[in-house]
């Protein structure tokens, strides 16, 4: 028996919008720790890891660790029917091949339930080690979205270079080249407008912009995004979900063979 009640239902709506374009179907893993997911995109270049910790739910019942396979496009369709202020409850009975999403309006005058068919999904789970990254950048998520969007009108890939002077985003295409440099700026009114650069070692990596653009679908979840990079390793693009968890995207760099 699984029963998860999330008062801030809009978070789940935003999570689905953040991952459904990258991953079409995935297993959600439910344990006493929380509701999580790890899935690769269809071309196996990017990976998304979601965590919604059990403490973040108003009610969290998960009798045994289970994995429920869902089509994310269909799940997003159902969650779109929930109001932004609605409380969302996810329910699944043991052995059932369906999951139920229940939406309650804040004043309890409208209660809807949507039942969705589950799927059997074969998925490969990868072990992602906790790593100290050589460089990490915290910046406004809107700024990162803007940079990815702007650069993808010029080129297909972006080189992200971190030095002590700042972080540089470089692209080039048929029409020319573009460089955007963001410097550390922590002397701002609001912490969410700050850009903070931590650098143990300078790092420079190249990535396909279309994936980074897809990751920015998570922008409504968080004001701040963190980019973590080490030489020859995937970049981690992290959006925190309040204090209950995160969406992390991992993207393999393009490497000179």
């Amino acid at each position: 028996m699984l029963e998860l009640r999330l008062v801030q239902g809009s978070l789940l709506k935003k999570v689905l919008e953040a991952i459904k374009d990258l991953v079409n179907e995935a297993n959600f893993d439910c344990s006493s720790t929380g509701f999580s997911l790890q899935a690769m995109d269809s071309s196996h270049v990017a990976l998304v890891a979601l965590m919604l910790r059990s403490e973040g739910f108003e009610h969290y019942r998960c009798d045994r660790t289970i994995s429920i396979g869902m089509n994310l496009t269909n799940m997003a369709k159902m969650l779109k029917c929930a109001g932004n202020d609605d409380i969302i409850t996810i329910k699944a009975d043991d052995g059932s091949d369906t999951v139920t999403f229940m939406f309650e309006s804040p004043s309890q005058d409208k209660i809807s339930d949507f039942e969705m068919k589950l799927m059997e999904i074969d998925s490969e789970h990868l072990g992602i080690p906790d790593t100290e990254y050589q460089s990490s950048i915290k910046m406004p998520s809107q700024e990162f979205l803007r940079i990815c969007k702007d650069l993808s009108s010029i080129g297909d890939t972006v080189m992200i270079s971190v030095t002590k002077d700042g972080v540089k985003f470089t692209t080039s295409g048929d029409i020319g080249t573009a460089n955007i440099v963001c410097r550390q700026n922590t002397s701002v009114d609001e912490p969410e407008n700050a850009t903070e650069i931590k650098m143990q070692e300078p790092v420079s990596l190249t990535f396909a912009l279309r994936y980074l653009n897809s990751f920015t679908k998570a922008t409504p979840l968080a004001n701040i995004v963190t980019l973590s990079m080490s030489a020859d390793l995937p970049i981690v693009v992290e959006y925190k979900i309040g204090d209950m968890g995160y969406v992390r995207y991992y993207l393999a760099p393009k490497i000179e063979e």
């Binding site: 196996h44 990017a46 992602i128 490497i255």
Partner: peptide, 14 residues
């Protein structure tokens, strides 16, 4: 030219 590696090649299964 730069080649795109798969994400799985960076992480161990499991």
């Amino acid at each position: 030219a730069k080649q795109q590696r798969s994400i799985a090649s960076f992480f161990s299964p499991g």
